[in-house]
Computed example of a mutant assay.
Amino acid sequence: MILNKNHRLYILIILCIFIGGCGRFGLHAVNHKNMLQHKVKKFDNRLNRNIKIAGFIRFNKKVLESIRLSKRKSNNQASVGTESIRGKKLANSHLQNKRHPVTNVRFDKHGMPDFTPYTIHSYKPKSASELTYDVKKDTKYFFKKTGLNQAEYSKHFAVHHNAHENRLDLVYRKAHDKTNHYGAVELNRWIKKSNTKDISPADLVK
Score class of each variant (00 low, 15 high):
residue 80 V to P: 02
residue 131 L to Q: 02
residue 84 S to E: 15
residue 127 S to T: 09
residue 94 H to W: 04
residue 116 T to K: 08
residue 94 H to P: 01
residue 131 L to N: 04
residue 88 K to A: 15
residue 96 Q to E: 07
residue 130 E to Q: 03
residue 91 A to H: 08
residue 80 V to F: 06
residue 136 K to F: 09
residue 89 K to I: 14
residue 136 K to V: 15
residue 98 K to W: 05
residue 104 N to G: 03
residue 112 M to G: 05
residue 103 T to H: 01
residue 96 Q to R: 15
residue 93 S to A: 10
residue 81 G to C: 07
residue 125 P to N: 02
residue 148 L to M: 09
residue 148 L to S: 09
residue 140 K to S: 11
residue 93 S to Q: 07
residue 129 S to G: 02
residue 98 K to R: 08
residue 82 T to Q: 04
residue 102 V to E: 04
residue 91 A to V: 11
residue 124 K to W: 02
residue 135 V to C: 05
residue 97 N to A: 06
residue 81 G to M: 10
residue 135 V to G: 02
residue 128 A to Y: 11
residue 81 G to E: 11
residue 133 Y to C: 13
residue 86 R to Y: 13
residue 102 V to H: 05
residue 98 K to Y: 09
residue 143 F to W: 12
residue 105 V to T: 13
residue 89 K to G: 00
residue 136 K to P: 02
residue 96 Q to I: 15
residue 150 Q to W: 03
residue 87 G to W: 15
residue 144 K to E: 13
residue 134 D to G: 12
residue 101 P to S: 08
residue 126 K to S: 03
residue 80 V to W: 06
residue 82 T to P: 03
residue 93 S to R: 03
residue 129 S to M: 12
residue 129 S to F: 04
residue 134 D to F: 11
residue 130 E to N: 06
residue 115 F to K: 01
residue 125 P to F: 00
residue 108 D to H: 04
residue 104 N to D: 05
residue 85 I to C: 10
residue 90 L to G: 00
residue 95 L to K: 00
residue 92 N to R: 14
residue 126 K to T: 02
residue 117 P to K: 04
residue 91 A to E: 06
residue 146 T to C: 06
residue 132 T to V: 07
residue 85 I to N: 11
residue 85 I to T: 15
residue 89 K to A: 13
residue 84 S to W: 00
residue 84 S to M: 12
residue 148 L to A: 10
residue 138 D to N: 10
residue 135 V to M: 07
residue 139 T to V: 03
residue 97 N to R: 10
residue 109 K to W: 02
residue 113 P to I: 01
residue 109 K to D: 03
residue 128 A to W: 15
residue 105 V to L: 06
residue 134 D to V: 13
residue 128 A to E: 12
residue 128 A to Q: 04
residue 123 Y to H: 10
residue 141 Y to W: 07
residue 93 S to F: 05
residue 98 K to S: 10
residue 119 T to P: 14
residue 120 I to C: 11
residue 81 G to S: 02
residue 129 S to A: 04
residue 94 H to F: 11
residue 91 A to C: 11
residue 92 N to H: 15
residue 148 L to R: 04
residue 144 K to Q: 11
residue 111 G to H: 12
residue 135 V to R: 09
residue 112 M to V: 10
residue 128 A to L: 03
residue 116 T to V: 06
residue 99 R to G: 01
residue 111 G to M: 09
residue 145 K to T: 01
residue 86 R to K: 12
residue 126 K to W: 01
residue 144 K to M: 09
residue 96 Q to K: 15
residue 92 N to E: 14
residue 95 L to E: 11
residue 132 T to N: 14
residue 120 I to K: 01
residue 111 G to E: 10
residue 112 M to L: 13
residue 92 N to F: 15
residue 115 F to D: 03
residue 103 T to G: 07
residue 146 T to S: 12
residue 112 M to N: 13
residue 109 K to M: 11
residue 105 V to G: 05
residue 115 F to C: 01
residue 132 T to Y: 10
residue 114 D to R: 04
residue 98 K to F: 06
